[in-house]
Design a protein around this nucleic acid. Sequence first.
DNA 1: TTGCTCCTCACGTCACGTGAGGTGGC
DNA 2: TTGCTCCTCACGTCACGTGAGGTGGC
Lengths: 278, 278
Amino acid sequence: MMSIGDLSSQTGVSVRRLRHYDGLGLVRPERIDPGTGYRWYADSQVGRVEAVLAARELGFTLAQCRLLLDEQVLVEELRELLGRRQAVLEQQIRQDTARLAEVGRRLRSLERGLTMTNQTLELKALPALRLAQVSAEVNDTSELPAMTRRLADELARRLATAGTPQPGPGIRTFYGRPDGSKIDVAVAVGVTDESLLPGLAGGGLELVDLPAEPSGAAVTHRGPARDVADAWHTIDVALEQRGLESHGVYRLVYLDEADSGDVVVELQCPVRPLGTGC
Amino acid sequence: MMSIGDLSSQTGVSVRRLRHYDGLGLVRPERIDPGTGYRWYADSQVGRVEAVLAARELGFTLAQCRLLLDEQVLVEELRELLGRRQAVLEQQIRQDTARLAEVGRRLRSLERGLTMTNQTLELKALPALRLAQVSAEVNDTSELPAMTRRLADELARRLATAGTPQPGPGIRTFYGRPDGSKIDVAVAVGVTDESLLPGLAGGGLELVDLPAEPSGAAVTHRGPARDVADAWHTIDVALEQRGLESHGVYRLVYLDEADSGDVVVELQCPVRPLGTGC
DNA sequence: TTGCTCCTCACGTCACGTGAGGTGGC
DNA sequence: TTGCTCCTCACGTCACGTGAGGTGGC
């Protein structure tokens, strides 16, 4: 006969867990002292606990462990139980493998972005732009991907309605309001041929003139489109190392787009020395 | 502006979950009607919900999702977070793969056992045996593996103490008491040379004479030692198909043991026609 | 008046960890 | 008297599902 503490130290299973297993009827003490309520276990019950651990190791729930250990399962049912476990495990491995790949991809994209930004960050003036755009507002950056997709679709539809050929490069602008309440986002085309303006306005597009910025930063990014979002982060890191910060209207200019889904874009933003804002 | 039901149908996320996300501050409605308490969401918040789903898909907790989406993480911390996720996922995949292999092994062992038993089940008389053994009692079959291991160790020690050479084949016996209270288990050697008896008794071994059984069943099992436990199950299945049932003292006779860990054993048990017990 | 949508509690899930407060024998 | 071991509640975890009971506008 051994106390619950003895059983715990022999099996490495916490006293609390043993009490839990008792409560579930999974490992019942041989005897319970009616006076003190102390649990007393037979030496052989170490084997029972080990059997529980083994079944749990296969990922069975405690309820299933109980069925397994109490021989409540016929061979048929055991086959069933194992078969289901097999399916669940296969599913889980597939899912986790996909997740792992995606996490790895994001990590690599982050590293690439950091080095790329440091290599190609360029301080230069940003030109004035004449844009035909559709715009919206979002609450924060997490809403940007879905919204830019929707706006891009919308822009494509309106351009088709207007019947104009692609007037210039694709451009996206982002303006985080200084009070932090909203971000204004627009998907636009640069208008290089002024004769197209009336047609574009007729198609329901907003015509906007973005002023030139004497002092700005630009980074060229090549890679999968979905990595672009991360790239904005890295600009701020690189700017801070130079004692600068970004502000105002951010611009994303599409320079090229391959069939592979890879894009070449230039991220641009106005900059100023750190701490001169407000 | 959309109601919580609208947002739910647009994102496929249940209304309850959206309320939960509100509670956690993960997706806050743009406006809450002070009178009715109704939640009103901006169209753009569909994107926010989708961002939550995407982060969750990578296996992040909701608390982590919140950090990620609210840009509370510096690039350094994001790298940290992704790195930890990577490690956890790798660990999980390793674990699940091991579990899957073990489950598959058990399934195959079960199938093999079933066909093997059907092929080799033999009805025959069981011989009388003279045994030198160590024994113990256990509460149920789940305690058998650990206990037989312990008894086997004990037997080896005592045989060494007695200084006798291996007197005969290794044998294990199991007797489930008719009231179901306990199972008596023994690990024994068959004594073929009577002159060894005094020495064995001196080594602290019990000497037991197991009577012959005129009517019994036997199955020869070859394979990994740990699959033997499952084999007992399959005997009962095969017997039932023949209108028989097992009872009394079960015997497990080691015929051979390879270095690979594979064993050749014969499982034996007394049988009687179904329903003639008690 | 009957549905429909929305609301706020609040319990249940799963396998325990972690106190909180109390007891019996050295 | 001080430790030590044991005891029984009971809350917290995580991401919701599932009622229970009630409300406002068509």
